Amino acid sequence: MTPSISQQLPAKPDVVALAATIEAEDGAPPLSDQAIAQLGDPAVTHLVAHDGERLVGYAQRDGDSLEIAAAPDAVLDLLDAAGDGPLLVWSHGRGSRLQAPLEQAGFVRDRELHQLRRPIDDEHPLPPDPPLTDDIAVRAFVPGTDDDAWLALNAAAFNHHPEQGGWDERDLQARMAESWFDPAGFLLAERPGALVGFHWTKIHPDGIGEVYVLGVSPDAQGLGLGRALLVRGLRHLAGRGCPAVLLYVDGDNAAAMHLYARDRFVTHDLDVQWRRP
């Protein structure tokens, strides 16, 4: 049966349940945190596919970027419904059901995002905390107090990365509204009067920790602050009982790959961004 597709705001619980089913079958979540955070956002385009009353597919278009969570027979229909013009689509994980339909539709690989992991156990102990310069202290993020300063730091740290560096107050508030948000795991490095780095951690429902975002101000480069924050964040996750930690890094970011390899992260899975020529 061909699913019926309409453009409308979805019921978030239905999309989350569909995504959970796909994750169990394919081995990776089909939607990014950004897409989940925007499920109720009328500023992006929402497409839903139904087989009768049953939700069988969801797609979200934000500018040229599209994410899809769908039963196999609804994927191509959602691609068609997304419209013409430039389009970038993420397939999450090597087992993603989107790869074959995207190739069939003429999409080509444009970007690779590696998921790295490392265990935290007696055989893989954490290193000692790297030292900080005397004028830098690390503390937890304070919601409502640090919002603007963190957004400015994030924009400076990721000025080369439009997805992350373009976050605004709405993006931050959407993350803080998620059930996983814990300010105690959002570490800030601070000089008197200025934030200079951060390590935002996350804990998944299965207990796996994540290096959610790690950033350092251009004014604090060369101080070893990135690794100092990385290790402190890993220690926080270990203290919360996480048996392992994951993170995502672009395959062409050699410096970051080297940083994480130093602390025993290895490639676990691969996300691919596909471009419609």
Rank of each mutant, 00 (worst) to 15 (best):
V15L: 10
V15M: 07
V15K: 03
V16Q: 14
A17T: 14
A17K: 12
A17Q: 13
L18H: 04
A19Y: 04
A20E: 15
A20P: 07
A20N: 06
A20R: 13
T21V: 13
T21D: 13
T21L: 13
T21S: 13
I22C: 04
I22H: 04
I22E: 01
E23V: 09
E23G: 10
A24E: 13
A24Q: 14
A24F: 08
A24M: 12
E25N: 11
E25F: 02
E25C: 04
E25R: 15
D26C: 01
D26P: 01
D26S: 12
G27L: 07
G27H: 09
G27S: 08
A28E: 11
P29D: 09
P29G: 07
L31W: 00
L31T: 12
L31S: 10
S32D: 07
S32E: 02
S32R: 02
S32H: 00
Q34A: 15
Q34D: 15
Q34F: 06
Q34R: 14
A35C: 14
A35Y: 00
A35T: 15
I36K: 11
I36Q: 08
I36V: 15
I36M: 14
I36S: 07
A37C: 14
A37D: 13
A37E: 07
A37N: 13
L39C: 09
L39S: 05
G40H: 10
G40P: 12
G40R: 03
D41W: 03
D41Y: 01
D41K: 03
D41C: 01
P42E: 05
P42N: 02
A43K: 11
V44F: 04
V44A: 00
V44S: 08
V44K: 05
T45I: 08
T45A: 10
H46P: 15
H46F: 02
L47M: 09
L47K: 05
L47W: 02
L47H: 02
L47R: 07
L47G: 04
A49I: 04
A49S: 05
A49N: 03
H50E: 10
H50M: 08
H50R: 15
D51M: 06
D51Q: 15
D51R: 15
D51W: 10
D51K: 13
D51N: 14
E53T: 15
E53D: 15
E53R: 15
R54M: 01
L55V: 01
L55A: 01
L55R: 09
V56S: 08
V56G: 02
V56I: 14
V56T: 12
V56C: 13
V56N: 05
G57K: 08
Y58P: 03
Y58V: 03
A59D: 06
A59H: 06
Q60W: 00
R61Y: 01
R61Q: 03
R61K: 12
R61D: 07
R61E: 05
D64T: 13
D64N: 10
S65G: 05
L66H: 06
L66A: 05
L66D: 05
L66Q: 06
L66G: 05
L66E: 09
L66N: 06
L66K: 01
